[in-house]
Design a protein around this nucleic acid. Structure first.
Lengths: 351, 351
DNA sequence: CAACTGCGAAAAATCGATTTACTCGTTTCT
DNA sequence: AGAAACGAGTAAATCGATTTTTCGCAGTTG
């Protein structure tokens, strides 16, 4: 057997056992911290582990248990700051509990979402954090239900009869945006959004509309909602402005809408906030840096991730009871992109 | 055994075998497409699989092989578009080959990088795609080398004597930026960067400087390089401008530098491109949307991911030979943030 | 008719860790 | 003293799939 040096196999528990002169079972017990091991033997095991650089193989370790120490995370995309931060947080929290996070992007497709879920089910993950493409009533949640999977739904959801949900309190945040805009004197406001994400977009719109109409019954609120993709939304927005509509403020119900709105303003040579005001749901680093700084609703990523994992691990550990629906409060940053209509140049208030 | 209905265990290969009236080995062969199975038996196996909804457990399947069908990916962060796209691509490519991608963020820490790597080694991953925090000479690459791991290094690397590398051709892109700026008449240019990422930042700087000096020997190139973190860079930049320096253009050698530069401009009331021009390495969606649109070097994410995975799988399949060092060409988008010096109305007013 | 060839499939070993069941001594209790 | 309890440890079963080995049987060949 001269081929031992090239492909150095990693030490297994048996290698440790034979070097320490005990059985594999004893090694396992030592590592688990079981008390009924002679200190002398324990020391020899520790020495052997040290010398061989032994580490438990998580794959083999997970073989025997029904729920493996793996958490699956499915996000609609990885490209935005929000989901990037979310994955970072989830990974960190999973790691803290000795779990491995396997993250996958559904790329905004419900079909892919279910495929990924099926693959995670094959892996017998202990639980799944799912940020559905559309809402809690999609095929993915149904799949999880049908297969008795443990999971938590986040972000584009309100509440569910089978799974705990955690999301940002869009309604409250939208109400605050409405208060700000109405307070600044806006009476013609355009809301922009994507229809497919029904749950959240509708909530945001309702929260906004209700509060706005309550404060100023004469306010006019236009809505441009596209089916599912960004480009149609851009086209609709272009048409809307082409018809001569001139709202004094735009409230974008999601991040890409803010980008689309900005680029449409630019195409028409409008400047914020002199020509039109802009607030967007979802914050991004660049928004504080551009001229003008863009006002935005900041979602509490850490809180959402934290409570999602908390709920998930509680279920994994067998907690019973009806599913909970958490709403985490957002913060609204009114930056320079919001001014008063017809006021001309105005100076931003520092945040 | 009345407790069977609540915790429905998934069907194993033995369940399929007994239902089909054959042995587990035969089921395995049928699934592997081995020819030496009687068609009649094969059909019964297929039927049993269908009826039980059987799917192979990838964990158990991987147990026996030395290299598991898992690829590890370690990125410095997930929050930026670049790495977000990278992870999405890598995941997609891994999935295409029947591998599972496990991604983790080193959060710009070399210590964490090595920890994650050790954990991936425990998982006996078939290969690792590592985007090092600093460069190819860090502890993570050393760990991979010492443990005989298979891997590819990407992004902040040039070349390595043990691993294949794939990164953007920073030098060529920087040269093009230099040509553009010199061509527009700039003769006092500030380059901004972070020092720790030595490999790429140095390359970018050298490529830029060499070409600029070649085209215009009288050009003055200042450099503001911070140790490792963004905030010190911001402070240094502030000091630089506070001393009265007024370059006509800034070339940021990495994304966050672009943001820092923009926010410093804003603090001082300078506008692009009238007061100062700006080009950044690394593109982002928002850069096309702001006033002005920010000129940027776009890295070929798909190409980098594609060639990284290609190289990685070649090595996994046993390909020998010296490590390769690939450079993928970038594209430079000269947007509105770049103009000619002294051309526009200097609207600089202290805020 | 015994020995040989091949095919198809089953039995058994393997991967690495954990857990159950069981075996010795030794101590404690009645 | 004899029985029960306990301490320390090991062999073996288990998880689910794969791979190697073995086996039975049918058809050939010498």
């Amino acid at each position: 057997m001269a081929h031992r040096q090239d492909q150095q196999r990693r030490a297994s528990i048996h290698d440790v056992a034979s070097r320490a002169g005990v059985s594999a079972a004893t090694v396992s017990k030592v590592m688990a911290g079981v008390a009924t091991v002679k200190p002398e033997n324990a020391q020899r095991v520790f020495d052997a582990i040290e010398q061989l650089g032994y580490r438990v193989d998580p794959l083999a370790s997970d073989m025997r248990r029904a729920k493996r120490r793996i958490i699956g995370a499915i996000m609609p995309e990885f490209e935005s700051e929000f989901f990037g931060q979310m994955v970072t947080q989830l990974e960190s929290l999973a790691e803290q509990r000795g779990y491995t996070l396997v993250a996958a992007s559904s790329r905004e497709s419900e079909a892919r979402e279910t495929e990924i879920l099926a693959r995670m089910h094959d892996w017998r993950v202990a639980g799944v954090v799912l940020a559905p493409v559309r809402n809690e009533h999609g095929p993915a949640a149904a799949f999880m239900k049908a297969n008795g999977m443990t999971g938590v739904l986040i972000d584009r959801v309100l509440s569910d009869d089978a799974f705990d949900t955690v999301s940002a309190d869009s309604a409250a945040a939208s109400a605050e945006v409405a208060r700000e805009l109405i307070g600044k004197g806006h009476r013609h406001i355009l809301a922009v959004g994507l229809g497919e994400q029904a749950a959240t977009v509708r909530t945001r719109l309702d929260g906004f509309r209700t509060t706005a109409l309550n404060l100023a019954p004469d306010v006019r609120i236009d809505v441009v909602l596209a089916e599912s993709h960004v480009e149609p939304l851009r086209a609709q927005l272009r048409d809307y402005f082409a018809e001569g509509e001139r709202p004094t403020a735009v409230y974008s119900l999601f991040l890409k809408g803010t980008l689309v709105a900005l680029s449409e303003f630019r195409r028409r040579g409008w400047h914020c906030p002199n020509d039109i005001s802009l607030v967007g749901f979802d914050d991004a680093e660049w928004m504080q840096v551009t001229w003008p700084a863009i006002a935005a609703v900041v979602q509490p990523v850490r809180q959402i991730a934290g409570h999602a994992m908390e709920a998930l691990f509680a279920r994994i550990e067998g907690e019973e009871g009806p599913p909970t629906a958490r709403l985490e409060p957002c913060r609204v940053f009114m930056r320079e992109s919001v001014g008063s209509p017809g006021n001309g140049p105005h100076s931003a208030k520092p945040q």
